[in-house]
């Protein structure tokens, strides 16, 4: 049964799943009570996305180079459609991302949120914090030597 989904919320989980490590996602997925079957609407395929930057950081867009992305679309047993767009070339990760996207639109949402999205979000924040903490330790503390003139 498909529920009404706010785009912001869906953007949040799809973005999180896009950069989750395949191995971690597989392990977390295995903890779910029920793992729905699916039919492919679009089987996983790997392609490129042209990444753009801005001239001077703020100006006109320019093409920086491509990144690999794998995407797929599937339908779980109750008819809910899920999309997966993930960085890199893992078809398994794209499949799980699409399946979880579909499940997040159903009554399984609470369990997916609890067992998969919450840990992924926490791990991502922790990894980011750990790097930021190492960076912070390399921040220069300037001080001026006062010369005794008297």
């Amino acid at each position: 049964m498909t529920q009404e989904i706010a785009p912001e919320a869906r953007k949040g989980w799809m973005s999180l799943l896009a950069s989750a490590a395949e191995g971690r996602l597989v392990a977390l997925f295995d903890t779910l009570e029920a793992q729905p079957d699916h039919d492919w609407l679009r089987a996983p395929e790997t392609g490129g996305v042209m990444v753009r930057g801005r001239t001077g950081g703020t100006g006109a867009p320019f093409n920086l180079g491509e990144m690999t992305v794998t995407r797929c679309t599937l339908k779980i047993a109750d008819g809910t459609v899920g999309h997966g767009y993930v960085q890199g070339r893992s078809k398994r990760q794209a499949e799980l991302a699409a399946k979880l996207d579909a499940m997040m639109q159903t009554e399984a949402a609470a369990e997916v949120e609890d067992k998969i999205l919450t840990p992924l979000r926490q791990e991502k924040a922790a990894a980011r914090d750990a790097r930021a903490a190492k960076a912070a330790a390399t921040k220069v503390d300037f001080f001026t030597m006062v010369r005794g003139e008297d």
């Binding site: 996305v49 753009r52 960076a135 390399t138």
Partner: peptide
């Protein structure tokens, strides 16, 4: 790279929001 289908183009990345290592 030439064998990859092009899925699209990204929005310009926001380097002002970069999580800076340096």
């Amino acid at each position: 790279r030439t064998t990859l289908p092009r899925f699209g183009t990204s929005q310009p990345v926001e380097t002002a929001d970069m999580a800076c290592d340096r």
